[in-house]
Amino acid sequence: MVIDRFKASAVLLLTVSSWAAAQVEINQAHILPRAISVSSAFTRPVIRANVDLVLVNVTVLDHSDRAVTGLESANFTVLDDKTPQIVSYLSSVDEPISLVVVLDASASMAVKIQEARKALTELINSSNPQDDFSLVIVQDKPRVAFHLDYSTTEIDRTTDAIQPDGFTALWDGMYLGMKELQNARYRRKAMVVISDGGDNHSKYTESQLKSLLEEADVEVYAIGMFDRFARRAEERMGPLQLDEVTSITGGRVFSVHDPEELSRSVIQISHELRSQYVLGYYPSNRNRDGKWRKLKIHLAGSASQAKFRLYAKKGYYAASE
């Protein structure tokens, strides 16, 4: 089965991933040509050039999960295929984002759907007012309930009409969310998944989805509304699978067991998305070969002595001729 390559996209899933104390693999590599300035590249078509600017979204948190602000380019060391790079651009502006929410509305979510609706509303209310939202509903087959260009005022009416039913085609729902993000108007893109477990009805496999996410500039978070004592196989595997899928994008999974934990997770995701750094550098490897480049970021200077945690994507595909 062939999966289309996505370039420069983002996704949200809610899950708990591993922490990196003083080192992180880069998140959301976005390719722009040297011939275009960073500010103008968001509104003008990208043209070909011999050297590309790589933009990387990075989240830095302290021991209390608060966003660390005020860092400078000297506080970051970037490794592209183990080769140190010069950080030539750094921004921490709250840029608008195109966000797809993938909501599990299968039969197993019947007793949790009301809390899931509240979480979706809270996520929108705590976001940048300029953000775009899309909603994918997951049952036997996923469907787009509303698109990125729809008004969020329709969201309550849309979610109130959802009746939990059927199986959980979660991977298919995330794939559909990626397709939706192809139409996003913003450079930054993300996905948030709200589910009570793993997949049990998709045509796409977890491996295929992970391959797709590796090629995409998408950040995925997941909120796992897991039961404390899982009964079905997909419920037992759900936390691990969501962690694997989200961590490769620089996102993570939040496991929640009550409404208070759910609310805290939603607010945390919103804050992280609005408090990221964007690093830019011109890679020393100028080959436009379309190959995978492994990325890592180290904290440098005084920041390296602090107990900060960094999240970022594991790499990117170089531009090709």
Score class of each variant (00 low, 15 high):
W292K: 08
L12E: 09
K189W: 01
E235F: 07
Q241W: 06
D132Q: 14
R5W: 12
G177A: 07
A169W: 01
P96K: 03
G198T: 00
V136N: 00
H298M: 08
H201G: 15
A145K: 05
T77M: 13
L120E: 00
L279N: 04
M225T: 01
F146C: 02
K7C: 07
N285L: 08
M109K: 00
E180P: 00
S247K: 04
F229E: 09
P45R: 06
M191K: 00
D227C: 06
S91F: 06
I248C: 03
A306I: 06
N57K: 14
E122I: 09
P84Y: 14
V220K: 03
N57M: 12
K203E: 12
T83K: 15
A21S: 15
L213T: 08
R264L: 14
N75M: 02
T59G: 08
L71V: 11
L181W: 04
S270K: 05
W19A: 12
I155D: 02
N57V: 12
A41L: 06
G280T: 10
K179C: 13
A190L: 02
T246S: 15
D140G: 10
L61H: 04
W292F: 13
Q163K: 14
Q23H: 11
D52H: 02
S40Y: 13
V245S: 03
G198V: 00
G250C: 05
N128F: 09
A22S: 15
T249C: 06
V278Y: 05
L71A: 12
V193Y: 00
F229W: 14
Q130N: 11
T121M: 13
Y281F: 14
S134R: 03
K179G: 11
K82Y: 15
A184I: 03
E180K: 04
Q114M: 10
K294F: 14
G238R: 00
Y282I: 09
V266M: 02
R274S: 14
L123C: 02
S275L: 04
E215W: 15
V54T: 06
E180C: 08
S275A: 10
N128K: 01
R309G: 06
F146K: 07
L12M: 12
D289S: 03
A21H: 13
S284K: 15
L55Y: 02
V38P: 12
T159N: 10
G177K: 04
R309Q: 09
R117K: 15
A306L: 12
S127W: 02
P164F: 07
L209V: 04
D156H: 13
D65M: 07
V245G: 03
G198E: 00
M174V: 10
W19M: 11
F133D: 00
P129Q: 05
L79P: 12
V58Y: 03
G166M: 02
N57H: 12
L212P: 02
D172K: 06
A20T: 09
A300W: 11
R236M: 15
A21F: 13
G250I: 10
